[in-house]
Amino acid sequence: MNYILIFLGAAIVNNFILSYFLGICPFLGVSTDLKKASGMGFAVIFVMVLASAATWGIYHKILMPYNLQYLQNVAFILVIASLVQFVEMFLKKFIPPLHKGLGIYLPLITTNCAILGLTLFMVIKDYDFIESIFYAVGAGSGFLMALLIMAGIRVRLDSADIPVPFRGAGIALITAGCLALIFMGFSGMMK
């Protein structure tokens, strides 16, 4: 039950995009059509799980025993970036179909704030390993959901008579703000 709550909390109540405003750049950049949005969303879930698993080990098995917690930001950034690059090369060589689906999005999110934010939240909330994985899957799913909603709306906006100054990123940011207002309805759902 605890795991389900962590998952739903990260996916809906504390959605990374709509309530923490993390990862806005891919949210605006790849939400122009549904296909790109879903590719990006699944890539984010994949990287989040990978990153949280790796950084959990680094934090609890290396940094903690030697009292090096102040190095966490540097260590996390370095580990996540190199790990994702390595995985990308691995996928390209050994699982080409998967690389074709996720590959082009992987380099885009290696240094994304949502990924680093996830690992830092994981440390603050003091999750154990399994909880961290559920947290990562939840956060990634919430990211995918927000991207899909946004992509659906933006496809409709293509044919709307939007005032010229607001076209493109302007209306996308206004829409993101409206979505954040709406997701406020879920606040208070988990203590």
Binding site: G152, I153, V155, R156, I182, G185, F186, S187, G188, M189
Partner: peptide, 28 residues
Amino acid sequence: LLRYFSGFPEGVMFSVLIMNALAPLLEK
């Protein structure tokens, strides 16, 4: 869902807005 579990007693406004946001996807 919101009436039972959220911090607000009423959920009609938010639920209609949530479905407004999902409407372009339902169109598919």
